[in-house]
Nucleic acid binder design. Structure first.
Lengths: 261, 261
DNA sequence: GTCAATATTCTCACTTTATGAGAATGAGAT
DNA sequence: ATCTCATTCTCATAAAGTGAGAATATTGAC
């Protein structure tokens, strides 16, 4: 391990349970010599990825907030979807959470979320949390739309993983219907309704989903929400498609030629 | 330039105006040989900091969303403040935006924001955007509470920067009052009311502020909001102080010893 | 399908750079 | 003052990144 991966290793020791670290503790945890650990941390602090907290403890730094904002403002999916999510929870007329989630490499991650007023629960899907690939309406709606080749790479070919036959059948059904509805698959008591947001040409494989309490939903409610989700999802897809076709690939501005030490 | 700084340089070419880059363009912009640029980008993609978009273009990647969530969940200030912001905009009973902002090195950055329902405007302060150090109620409320030594480092000593005399006097006044109110200093037509959130022992220098339309505020309104902001800010400070005194500095859990290639 | 034009990865000799043990210094606590 | 622990510094060593150019993959045009 060396070079870049050392920085990644240091960042990876931070998690929900251990969010403040002293340098010696990091060095111990990673098996690094003290001098290297100190240097690595100093570089990360200089770059804004870590921040000195107190008593020699370090926390994640402001660069993550800053880059997250930049991503929020420039990522076409997040940008196009955030407004749609607000509309969806408004028009749902019931306590619920709306989510926009994407395939990122081999995991699904929620990239935007919005809760209706007075919603007493929360989905375990939430912005920034990696989620299982094969469970929940949100993920399945995405998988169902993938080209066979890509799907095989993610869940294994039918031959290599025959136990995925059930899942494959389910995905085919979802593709036919155009949406996916599940109940208590991720959070017990909560139902999920998801519709795909797919823009192949822009490399976007995503879904829009609505999470509500299962017991609150009668059949007509459910149908109404399915319609809401499906139409909102296709609205987003349309906008993305349109934006993509009218966007140049290369940076529109000559770009700031920053000097680097 | 080499090693780590090459990664930083690549990340820095991304901004609001240029959010998708091809590798050759990056190489041009940074004066890097193609092979190095491709390698750097590949490493960043592997780490999740960049993502392949389409047609050889790259965007900021999911790692930023993920680490931002982690920070949101573990940073004591953000965690303690988010709830308070919701309360503040509720109790303001007027269209407004509440902000929680921090000193990070030599800039001020908003780390959490919340708008009241039906708020037709937005503050230029928003989560993740670095803001000027010496303008606006938000920043001044923070500066006013800094130890002399630290303040001198940021705005220069009275001798080195005598033109800051006005600012210094203003900050003294803010310290005496315990809050700062400004109008049209950042956004014309908007007024800001800010109170400090200072927890020295935890290394936190922050402020809570409320932004509303200046014309909407009569004197009694203004007094009410000042009270609201000041009390919310001290509530957050108290919680942070309490939490800090009851928190161990080192990671509570032995930590996951991840293997790195 | 072929072909040309790019985009991307690979190779490899060359150094620049990071590395880490240990010494030196700094900061706190008793 | 002294001890302890945290942090930085030094420097010989080795490892990693570097970059020109070749090799290969991809894409789009025809």
């Amino acid at each position: 391990m060396a070079g870049f991966s050392r920085f990644l290793a240091v960042l990876r020791v931070f998690n929900e349970a251990a969010s403040a670290w002293s340098v010696p503790d990091m060095a111990d945890a990673l098996g690094l010599p003290a001098s290297t650990a100190y240097r690595t941390v100093r570089d990360l602090v200089d770059a804004g990825f870590l921040e000195a907290a107190h008593d020699g403890a370090y926390r994640l730094g402001p660069a993550f907030i800053e880059y997250d904002r930049l991503l929020r403002m420039t990522d076409p999916l997040v940008h196009a979807g955030a407004g749609a999510l607000r509309d969806v929870v408004m028009q749902a007329h019931t306590p619920c959470v709306a989510l926009l989630s994407r395939l990122y490499n081999d995991q699904v991650m929620c990239v935007a979320d919005e809760a209706a007023r007075e919603t007493p629960f929360r989905s375990s899907y939430e912005r920034g949390k990696p989620m299982p690939l094969t469970q929940g309406a949100t993920s399945k709606a995405i998988l169902a739309q993938l080209p066979t080749r890509q799907l095989n790479r993610l869940i294994g070919t039918p031959k290599a993983a025959p136990d995925n036959e059930v899942l494959r059948r389910e995905l085919a059904e979802i593709r036919r219907r155009g949406y996916c509805a599940t109940a208590s698959e991720i959070d017990t008591g909560l139902a999920g309704i998801a519709a795909p947001v797919i823009v192949r040409e822009a490399g976007i494989h995503a879904s829009l989903s609505l999470v509500a309490e299962d017991t609150n939903l009668d059949e007509s409610q459910r149908r109404r929400l399915v319609l809401l989700v499906v139409s909102a999802a296709s609205l987003i897809s349309e906008e993305l498609r349109h934006r993509h076709s009218s966007t140049s690939i290369n940076p529109p501005v000559p770009m700031p030629r920053r000097s680097v030490k």
